[in-house]
Structure formats: structure tokens, C-alpha cells
Design a protein around this nucleic acid. Structure first.
Lengths: 371, 371
DNA sequence: AATGGAGTGGCAAACGTTTTCAAGGGCAAG
DNA sequence: CTTGCCCTTGAAAACGTTTGCCACTCCATT
């Protein structure tokens, strides 16, 4: 460790004293090894060793290549990615920000991302923001400091404009540094994007119900401060208009994306309107609605049909197996990884749009149309 | 970017030509800034700038400190953690390896970890191994290359001894480099550890059933190649012996930790033995068992009680609200972060052991003891 | 008036890579 | 025998930090 030469000299250039500590010859397989160790063992320069280890296009004779490789192997050398990143300005890391990593919805997305990224030798930092804008901003800053090559926003963002502004300035800084920003689904930020058409998904679900004879359908909405809530709600209202269904504000209740909230919203709907079906903006709320219905002595789906959105694992095993719309979360993550890699390669990827698919289970019944 | 001085000179030491490119004076708020920019703007040396930005103990006068701080602020300077890591040999990152990040069980753990780590300025890499030993090994290597300060194994490991050996040698290499390895719950690897007593948890559950009058209870086990399956099974068998319950291999069926597996195991149990209660080694299997029971016309809990283990979110919303044992996954992660930080601080943390808690819902009934 | 700290600040080396540039060797063509 | 080119290699600068060591300025002490 200690430098051999201690005196002061402008260039550290005494005749024949190497400023690098010579390496003791008998430490194979121990401690941390650097390129210098490999080079020394192979009897080549650090530059040459680097060239073979990094797969440089600069030619190296097969003989020396093998010497280096075997030396690296004997020392079980692993290149220091931090040092490499410092000179190449590519860290081979990306950060993802989600609302809640323990929510399987985001878990699937992260899994898709990670799968797509790992095979291309990228590591994934994860951040769980709890929907806290301050935290999200802090994560952007932190990722930035760690020189990530890209940041993925899987968190569906808030509608609050001041939040949007703060996020935008911070992200701009990151972009200037050369970072790419990828957005999964609905978000205020610009960037290559994988779109899942939430609007269309609930519209299609309404269409499905209409096909089953329903004309009076209620809607349980998500919390208004989330962008996605508005998008899904828009899908509902346009479909209602398009199909000419019974309409009015009393057909819509806010469930806050939770089971209990869904139950409460259902209770309100029961009081206010006479519907034959309800679509909830999330499966969790749909389950809450079903529980409320059952508790009130209303049978599902015989008296009232319930449809969800997301197709979370619970959906299949709830009080009544839930008919819902599958949101392809894993694929969202996976495609996110793809366009991310393209953007990182300097290309300008097209947005990819993913479609949803209805999962028919047992919570929706056909209503007998009289005449 | 371009170096001003191109000619060859041993020390790069021409009289008055700085080898560093002078910085154009009008680029505040743009591009990537380094300490050098900050120092220049503040009119101090890089060393001084470093000292104030990194909170060094080396004293700096308040006047210059303020100058540096304001310069950093004007440039919105963010220190490059990679460069810092290179010299301090501390990257402020840790990697976690889990079986499946989309499983809320692991999601909660990761969330706990991340919460505990972020506040101490550590970033978290995440890896989802799909229970593939080869992948796990590869992740250890990759994390190693990225100079993580610690690796957390949240994946409950395989019993396969060759896997254990490979993992051990790779981990040893990592430890030698100064990395700390933390293990959450049951694993073959050594290291500071947060223990959740799986054995005790199922034993306690059996005790609970015994308290409810059950004397003939069946067990649905996890896949034998997972360490945790063996541990939980051991809890069952010792409890059975301790309480003197009906015993024999026919009381135990393998459910593979899945819903369908749990259903099949339940079917087998129904054929082989006459039980009043069943405990499943996971909630998923318990739900499968309930569905199988219901489908066979057996009422839950009136005819057969079902108990689970884990307390996953689904548990509450299944066909019958499930009585189960809460595994404190978030706390496991959180405590993992704590002992990790202690270990990183050079202390030798004690293992922490977490206890479980029974969650009484509606899937267990008291059996009337005749006499 | 000389001595000596304490308080600040700068120089330059170091971390482990990649990459530019130049140099050496070999060999074919003139 | 020279010339020139290609192939291979090495020296050293660079990336953006931290830090050991030294130097300088002030003041208070002898």
C-alpha cells in the first residue's frame, strides 16, 4: 500500500524506483486483484491486459491474449465496473422508481425490467417512493449521483402541477448529463414510453358488460390525485356516452384504490342508484365491492355483476372469482427494458403500446333483456 | 474536453500551461459539473472544495465554506459517487438477491430493506433469481464487480450441497474484498442474520389448533428442495410429537408452495386420513386447500379447519378469511438493513430474531370434545 | 524579538480502468 | 538494402474524487 517514494519531487520521477508498489508474488486467489496484477502475472502491460479483458477492438495476438486470460483466471480477476464507468461515462446501471415495491403490480414491472436488463449486463437500482413526491425527487437526485445511465418511472404520477415542475427540472438536469428517461404508461414526463392504454381498457370492459346486456353500470374510481385515475375514468365516461348508457355523477364513486375504499364506494352506489353491474378501477376495489355486496345480502353476479381491472393474483381467489381486465405488468417492464436499451444504444425507439385482455371468471352475469 | 497540451513530456509539466482544460465561464446550470468547476467558481483548490462537500473533518473557514457551498449550489453540483467510491473503497450500494421480486413476500422484504438503507444514503440493487442457482451465482459475481458493500440473501436457499459449495466459494471471495454478507432467515450461508423462527411458527400454530380441541391434524408441506420447507416441516413433526397427536406419514402431503399444489395435496389428505384440521406451510397452499375442500362439499371451518402461514394480502380475501401466522416480512427487511449497517460500521451485530403472531380469522373452528 | 502552535489551504498522488499516441518488429515491395 | 506498411505492444493521460503531507499566516507565548 505505502508508496515507496516519500520525498517531494515535482514529477515523482526518481530514476529507477517504481511509484507503484511491487506485488508480492504469492497471493493468488486472495484479496482484491486489479488489472495491474493480471498484467504483471501475464508479463504484459496494463493497457494490453485491459484490451483483452474489455473485449476491445484493438487487436491483440492470440498468444498474449491467452496469457492474459489465464492470468485473470488464476487470480479470479473481476474488473472494477466503477473505475470503468469513470472513464467510459457508462455505469451500466439503471434506476427504477415505483410507488410501492411490495405491490405485486409494481413487482411484476420491476421483474420484467430486471429480466430484460440483466441479460444485457445492466444492474437495476430500485426505489419505493410511497407516492411521496419529495422522496421521488430525492431518488432522482441520488440515482443521478450514482451516475445511472437511465431512470425508469414506473410510478404513475401525480396530477399536482408543482410536483410535475419539480420533477421536470430535476430530470432535465439528468438528461443533460446524457441520461435517458423512460416512462412506463401514464406520466407527465416526456421520454420513450411503453403505453398501456388504460382508457381503452376500461372502455372495453364497459363494452363487454354492454354485450352482456347491462345498461345501468356504476363505476368505482381511483384517487383523483393520481393521473391514472383520471385516464381510467375518462375511459368509463366516453364508453358510457358511446353506448348511450344511463349516466350521471351518481353512477361514480371514489374508492381510493383500496379494498375498504372499494367497499365504501359500493355502499354509496347501492344507496344512490340502481345498477346491474359495477366496474372498479382496480381489482382491490372490486374485491371490496364484492365483499360489501355479499355482506348486504346482494348476490354476485346474479343480482349485481362486478368487474375489475389489473388482474392481480388475488383476483382469482376472492369471494367470487373476479372477471377483470389483465394489465400486462410483466410485459410492460420487459418492453420498458427493450426501449431503454435501444435508447441507450443511441437509437430513438418508438413507443410501444400494449393491449389488454379480458379475463372471464365468475363475477359477471348476463342480464336477461325483457323483449 | 480536448487537452490543451499534446506534446510528449515525462511529467506533463510545461512552465505555465495547465494540463487541465480551462472552463468556459458561462455555463452555469448546464452540463455535468465536477468539483473542479465548483473550486474554480469559488476561487479555491479542488481539495478545499472536496473537504467542504464531503464533510471532511479537516477544518475549513466558514467564509470559504460558504463560497464553496454557494458555488456548488449555483452549478447544482452533485458529487460523483463512483469517483468517490473508487478512492474510499465504499460504494454506498448493496445488492439483494430474492427468489421472485413479484412475490409480495419478497417485495415486502425488499421494501423494508430499501426503507432502512435509503435513509442512510445507501442504494439498493435488486436481483430476482427465479430460484435458479446459476443465476444467483451470476448475481453475486455481478454485484461484486459493481463493488457493492454488502450482499443480502433473502432467497431461502436450496438444500442441494453442490449449490451450497459454489455459493460459499463465490461469497468467500466477496468477503475477502471486505464485503459483508447478510442473511435473512434460513440459509446455508454464514453471516449476520435476522432469524425468523419458522420452526416455532408452525409449532405454535399446531399448538393453537390443539387448544381448539383438534387431535388429528394434517400438514401440507412445501417443496423439499427448499431449506425452509424442511424447517417448517420439522416444526410440525416436533409439535405433533410434543402434543401426542395422531401421527404418520399419511398425515403429510406435498403442496409445492402453489395454490393448485395445495389443492392436490388436500385431495390426497382427504383420501388417506380423517383429520379435523389442516395446516399448510404457506397461505397460497391453504387457499388451494380451502378451494378443494369447498369443491368437494366439505365446509370450512365447520367440518375441517384450515390454517396457513405467511399472512399474505390474499389471506384475508380468500373463499374463507384465513386464520394464519403472520410472518413479519417488512420487519425482516427492516432489521436486515439495521444489522447490515452495523456490520458495515465495523461492529459485529447480534443476530436478531423475530417472532410471529397468529392472525385469527374465520377458517378455524373449535371442535366439540365429547366428554 | 524569536519561538511555536493552531488554524487554513494547496499540491499531488492514488483509486482501477480505458484510450490516444507513438514506437518497435517483421515483412513485402521497390 | 532501403522504404513503407501492418501488426502488436507499451507509456501515460484522463475520468472525478479523497487525503497525506507540507506551507503559510496569525497570534500568543517566552
Amino acid at each position: 500500500m505505502a508508496n515507496v517514494f516519500k520525498g517531494k519531487l515535482p514529477c515523482g520521477y526518481p530514476a529507477s524506483v517504481s511509484s507503484k508498489t511491487p506485488i508480492s508474488s504469492s497471493n493468488e486467489g486472495e484479496a482484491a486483484h486489479s488489472l495491474r496484477h493480471v498484467a504483471q502475472l501475464a508479463g504484459v502491460s496494463v493497457a494490453t491486459a485491459s484490451r483483452v479483458m474489455s473485449g476491445s477492438s484493438h487487436p491483440v495476438s492470440t498468444k498474449t491474449r491467452e496469457r492474459v486470460l489465464s492470468a485473470a483466471d488464476r487470480l479470479s480477476f473481476e474488473p472494477n465496473r466503477l473505475a470503468r464507468a469513470l472513464v467510459t461515462a457508462k455505469s451500466q446501471t439503471v434506476g427504477v422508481i415505483v410507488h410501492d415495491i411490495s405491490d405485486p403490480y409494481f413487482g411484476e414491472i420491476v421483474k420484467g425490467l430486471e429480466d430484460g436488463l440483466h441479460s444485457e449486463d445492466y444492474r437495476l437500482f430500485v426505489a419505493s417512493s410511497d407516492r411521496d413526491p419529495v422522496k421521488e425527487l430525492d431518488y432522482v437526485r441520488a440515482f443521478h449521483a450514482h451516475q445511472v445511465d437511465a431512470i425508469v418511472f414506473a410510478a404513475s404520477s401525480l396530477t399536482d402541477p408543482s410536483y410535475a415542475e419539480a420533477l421536470e427540472t430535476l430530470s432535465a438536469r439528468f438528461r443533460v448529463r446524457g441520461g435517458v428517461i423512460v416512462v412506463l404508461s401514464d406520466h407527465l414526463l416526456e421520454g420513450p414510453r411503453v403505453r398501456f392504454d388504460n382508457r381503452r381498457a376500461v372502455a372495453d370492459m364497459v363494452g363487454y358488460l354492454v354485450g352482456r346486456g347491462h345498461r345501468r353500470v356504476g363505476y368505482i374510481s381511483g384517487p383523483p390525485e393520481l393521473l391514472v385515475s383520471g385516464v381510467r375514468l375518462a375511459g368509463f365516461t366516453t364508453a358510457v356516452a358511446e353506448f348511450g348508457l344511463a349516466t350521471g355523477p351518481e353512477y361514480i364513486a371514489n374508492g381510493g384504490f383500496t379494498v375498504t375504499g372499494g367497499g365504501a364506494a359500493m355502499g354509496q352506489l347501492l344507496e344512490d342508484v340502481d345498477v346491474t353491474a359495477v366496474v372498479a378501477a382496480s381489482d382491490l376495489m372490486a374485491i371490496g365491492a364484492m365483499r360489501q355486496l355479499l355482506a348486504s345480502g346482494v348476490s354476485v353476479p346474479e343480482e349485481i355483476s362486478v368487474a375489475g381491472l389489473d388482474d392481480i393474483p388475488i383476483a382469482e381467489y376472492g369471494p367470487v372469482p373476479l372477471t377483470t381486465m389483465r394489465v400486462p405488468t410483466y410485459e410492460i417492464g420487459r418492453h420498458g427494458a427493450s426501449i431503454l436499451l435501444e435508447a441507450l444504444a443511441g437509437e430513438t425507439p418508438d413507443d410501444v403500446v400494449l393491449s389488454s385482455q379480458i379475463i372471464e371468471r365468475e363475477s359477471v352475469a348476463t342480464v336477461e333483456t325483457p323483449g
